[in-house]
Design a protein around this nucleic acid. Structure first.
Length: 222
DNA sequence: ACCCAGGTGGCCC
DNA sequence: GGGCCACATGGG
C-alpha cells in the first residue's frame, strides 16, 4: 500500500537518486516568493517569470510596494502570468492586508503555523496550495505542499482510482514524512521534477522512477 | 485549432 | 460538502 511505499523514505530516496537535491523555489526574497506563489496559480512558471521580471524592473517586487500600487499599472506588469485582472486585485489586497496589520512579512510570519495558515486562507486569492507554498517556501514552515504534480504522482502510486482531497493527501504525506524543512522543500520539488519529466502518459514509460515502486499489482486502499 | 499550466472564488444543488 | 464555471496568457 501507499504507506509502505512512502514510509522509510523509499519514494524520496528513489526520486532524490534520480534528480539530485533540488534547491527549488526560485526567488531571492520572501516577498518575491510570496508574490510568485500567487502569480503561478494555474499558470506555467515561464509566464510568471516574465511578470516578476516586469515587477523587478519597475522596482515593485515587494509586499509594501504592491500594497499601494495602482491597479492598471499592476495589471500591465503581471499580464503575462494570466488572469491578470483577478490577480492584480487579489495580490494587492493580500499585500495591503499584511502591511496594514503586521507591517512586515517577518512580523506576519512570526505566529503559530496553524493560525498563520488560517489567516492566509481567509484572504481572497489564497487557497490551500498557495497558503502552503507560502508557508513552506516563504515563511519556512515545514508544511507539505500538495499540487497537481504531487496529486498525479500519488495517484499513479495508488493506482489511479481513489481520488483524495487536499487535506487527506496532505495528512497522508505529513504522516509519513518527518517534518523537516529542507526535506519538505526538496520532496515537493522532486514531485514537480518527476511530473515535468515523467508520469505524463497513462502507462508509465520505462524510465519513470515510479516503476520501481509501482507495479500496478496491489492498488488496495487501507 | 485545441489543450495545458506549480488554483481560486462564486454559484448552485 | 461536492460539482461546475469564469478567469487569461503563452507554449506545445
Amino acid at each position: 500500500m501507499l504507506h509502505d511505499r512512502i514510509q522509510g523514505g523509499r519514494l524520496y530516496k528513489l526520486l532524490r537518486d534520480r534528480f539530485g537535491f533540488l534547491n527549488w523555489w526560485p526567488g531571492d526574497t520572501r516577498d518575491e516568493i510570496l508574490i510568485g506563489a500567487v502569480l503561478t496559480q494555474n499558470t506555467s512558471w515561464k509566464n510568471v517569470e516574465k511578470a516578476i521580471k516586469n515587477l523587478k524592473a519597475a522596482d515593485m517586487l515587494s509586499i509594501e510596494k504592491i500594497s499601494h500600487a495602482r491597479i492598471p499599472q499592476l495589471q500591465s506588469m503581471i499580464r503575462p502570468s494570466g488572469y491578470y485582472r483577478q490577480k492584480a486585485q487579489r495580490l494587492k489586497g493580500i499585500c495591503k492586508y499584511i502591511t496594514a496589520n503586521y507591517g512586515t512579512l517577518n512580523c506576519f510570519f512570526s505566529q503559530d503555523t496553524p493560525k498563520l495558515r488560517a489567516e492566509l486562507l481567509s484572504l481572497s486569492g489564497i487557497g490551500p496550495e498557495t497558503a502552503d507554498s507560502i508557508l513552506l517556501y516563504s515563511a519556512g514552515k515545514p508544511v507539505f505542499v500538495i499540487d497537481a504534480y504531487t496529486r498525479r504522482a500519488v495517484q499513479r502510486i495508488y493506482g489511479e482510482k481513489h481520488e483524495m482531497g487536499y487535506s487527506d493527501l496532505q495528512s497522508l504525506l505529513q504522516g509519513h514524512v518527518p517534518a523537516d524543512l529542507r526535506l519538505y522543500k526538496d520532496f515537493h520539488a522532486q514531485f514537480v521534477e518527476l511530473g515535468k519529466n515523467y508520469c505524463k502518459k497513462k502507462p508509465l514509460c520505462g524510465a519513470c522512477p515510479l516503476r520501481q515502486i509501482c507495479n500496478y499489482a496491489t492498488p488496495q486502499i487501507p
